[in-house]
Amino acid sequence: MADPAQFTSLFVKHERQLYGFIAAMLGHPAEAEDLLQETAKGLWKKFSDYDPSLPFLPWAKKFARYEVLNYLGRQRTRRKYFSDEMVELLAEDWDRVDSQHDARILALECCFEALPENSRRLLNDRYRDANSLQEVAAQEGTTPNALYKTLQRVRNGLRACINRRVAEGAN
């Protein structure tokens, strides 16, 4: 019989990656949480089929990919989402991106600390408690559009810094 403790341990360990995988395929991160829950239930139902000698994440990603394609197939507004072909392409590329994630996290910690204090505060306000752009804009006394442009610049800068650090580390 499948061991729930083992399942929860494995699932929790890879939850972040599975959520990221689903959100990227969907193109609508807000809908990823529901799908992650459906994926978890499907994985649990089939957990007795899982070979513990093999890595959990590739096995789990297959289910996640199926859930995404299944979900997209049921959508009334299909043009709101990527095509099935694009989902498959992104699924293939995702492994490559995920393999660099540890290095990128380390770089992000450094790059984040190197940001001006205003920029760090802005990012924390935006992302803490899933505040919406509108809410943060109201707090900052600006418009959502203007705030979005500012956030965009900060995030572009962060990504450039991360890319530089990762490239330096590779060399």
């Binding site: 959520y19 990221g20 990227a24 991160p29 990128r104 992000l108 962060l158």
Partner: peptide
């Protein structure tokens, strides 16, 4: 994919 990953991080 990296942009979405940064957002989640």
């Amino acid at each position: 994919l990296q942009t979405l990953q940064l957002h989640q991080d």
